[in-house]
């Protein structure tokens, strides 16, 4: 796992580099915020350890920039500082800092915070992978939902349970806000209703003539 350490104090930076390598991380180092930001964009480390006060670009400004530009990929940020006042902690957290570590560096505390960061980044990666898996599945379902089997003759619809139903039943089930009012279109009137009417009246006429002849 890549860890970027940014501090203008070379003693801190060399110590961090050594400790990170010892703890099994892949260290990257920068002596100021501008170089830190450049390395961040180049290598996309999962964890960032940064000093508060630095020349060119201060830690909180760098953190804000990273949070603004890399919304989709989370980075666990530890602020390394000799400041420990409530106001400073608050402004660091508002800038996007996850954790604070005070100077001088305590190797055990550093290791513990890195473990927390690693755990969170692993969870985040697994969550991101699950989300993208769900998105893929949703797309697939959408494609399948786009196909609605309909009988070419009677126009019945096959539902998700493989049952055939009338189109009005299907729509009434799947579109709760739609209600049907039955009517007859002119084409169906000509082809279906009119012949039935003619047959009916013809039968009636026959009945009347039979009655008359009787």
């Amino acid at each position: 796992m890549k860890v970027l350490a940014v501090d203008d104090d070379r003693v801190t930076l060399v110590t961090l580099e050594r400790l990170l390598a010892k703890f099994g991380y892949e260290p990257l180092t920068a002596l100021n915020g501008t170089d830190g930001l450049r390395l961040f964009l180049e290598h996309k480390p999962q964890i960032l350890i940064t000093d508060w006060m630095m020349p060119e670009m201060e830690g909180p400004t760098m953190v804000k920039t990273i949070r603004a530009f890399a919304e989709s990929e989370y980075t666990y940020i530890i602020m390394l500082t000799s400041r420990n006042e409530k106001e400073d902690m608050m402004s660091g957290m508002l800038a996007g800092v996850d954790e604070f570590l005070s100077k001088p560096i305590d190797p055990d505390q550093l290791r513990a915070r890195l473990r927390v960061g690693k755990r969170i980044m692993t969870l985040q990666a697994s969550l991101a992978s699950r989300v993208s898996e769900l998105e893929r599945e949703r797309k697939h379902i959408k494609v399948l939902q786009g196909f609605l089997p309909i009988c070419s003759y009677c126009k019945k619809i096959r539902d998700d349970e493989n049952l055939w139903s009338q189109i009005e039943e299907y729509i009434a089930e799947h579109q709760a806000n739609i209600q049907f009012s039955h009517s007859i279109c002119p084409d169906c009137f000509e082809t279906k209703v009119k012949p039935m009417q003619e047959a009916f009246f013809s039968k009636k006429r026959e009945e009347v003539s039979e009655l008359k002849s009787a």
């Binding site: 003693v11 110590t15 001088p104």
Partner: peptide, 15 residues
């Protein structure tokens, strides 16, 4: 102030 702050960090690191 900024330089003193920076030197403070280094000093803390070496005790």
């Amino acid at each position: 102030g900024a330089l003193a702050h920076s030197l403070k960090g280094a000093a803390l690191n070496i005790g």
